[in-house]
Each structure stands twice: as structure tokens, then as C-alpha cells.
């Protein structure tokens, strides 16, 4: 499966659609056994209630300018949440199923990511 198949896929919970995959969060571990560098791993998915939303970088709480655009894009992505990979029940051809007890985390990125 490709990461590209996951992006924009519908997300279901208990047979009900709760949104679409807006983003996939990766984690790069400092070390993977048998390799020089860590292999990135999927850490969780960001679910947005609307299909058309994109964060355009404003998921980082440290970026608030220009005001109007930041407010607009935050508003477009309102109601988004992060679900960790273990909380996914099934990832298939026609979407993602969340477990019934899947925990919804804030989609905000608090600290500035290190480039």
C-alpha cells in the first residue's frame, strides 16, 4: 500500500463516516536495528470532517501570521483530530476503520518541528 492511497481516504467508525484522512504523521526513530539510520514509521493519521480541507502549515500552533489567512485555514480544518496507528481497526481499499474506543488527540503540532 502506498501512502498516497491513504491520503483523502474516507474514515469510518462504527459504520459511520467521521471524515477523511487529511494528513499522515510519521515518526523517525533514532535507530532501527540493522540499519545506520532510523526507518520512518507511520505514527498516526489526521482526520478532518471535510474532504476539501488542508492545513497549509497552520497545524503548527507557533505559526499565526498572516492573521486572516491563518484564521481562515484553521476554520477550514476545524474539528480535525489525530488518531494513533494502533487505534485503527482496518486499513483497506475503500477507507480506514477506526476502533470503537479510538482516542482522538489534538491535531495541533505544539513545538516547532526540527527541519
Amino acid at each position: 500500500m502506498f501512502l498516497g492511497d491513504l491520503v483523502a481516504a474516507p474514515v469510518l467508525q462504527d459504520g459511520r463516516r467521521v471524515g477523511y484522512v487529511a494528513d499522515v504523521r510519521l515518526l523517525v526513530p533514532p535507530h532501527t536495528p540493522g540499519q545506520r539510520v532510523g526507518t520512518p514509521r507511520v505514527y498516526g493519521i489526521v482526520v478532518c470532517p471535510r474532504r476539501t480541507a488542508s492545513f497549509v502549515g497552520y497545524e503548527r500552533t507557533g505559526v499565526r501570521e498572516p492573521r486572516l489567512l491563518a484564521a481562515f485555514f484553521r476554520w477550514r480544518a476545524r474539528g480535525s483530530f489525530l488518531v494513533l496507528w494502533p487505534d485503527l481497526a482496518r486499513v483497506g481499499e475503500n477507507g480506514v476503520d477506526l476502533r470503537l474506543d479510538a482516542r482522538r488527540w489534538s491535531a495541533d503540532l505544539d513545538s516547532r518541528p526540527q527541519l
Binding site: V56, G57, R60, G62, V63, E65, P66, R67, L68, L69, R112, P113, L115
Partner: peptide, 27 residues
């Protein structure tokens, strides 16, 4: 749009992000 957004992004520009007045004019 992308230029206006990125010109405010500290990850790209550090302390060279748009000053306040330029953002008002830009918007």
C-alpha cells in the same frame, strides 16, 4: 497565496518573516 503564507513561516525564513505592516498590505 503560497508566497504570502511561506513569507510568514519561521521554519523557512527564521527571523526574516514578513513584518506586520507588510502582512496587512499583503492581505
Amino acid at each position: 497565496l503560497p508566497i504570502l503564507i511561506v513569507a510568514n513561516d519561521p521554519d523557512y525564513l527564521g527571523d526574516q518573516v514578513n513584518p506586520r505592516l507588510l502582512n496587512i498590505a499583503g492581505q
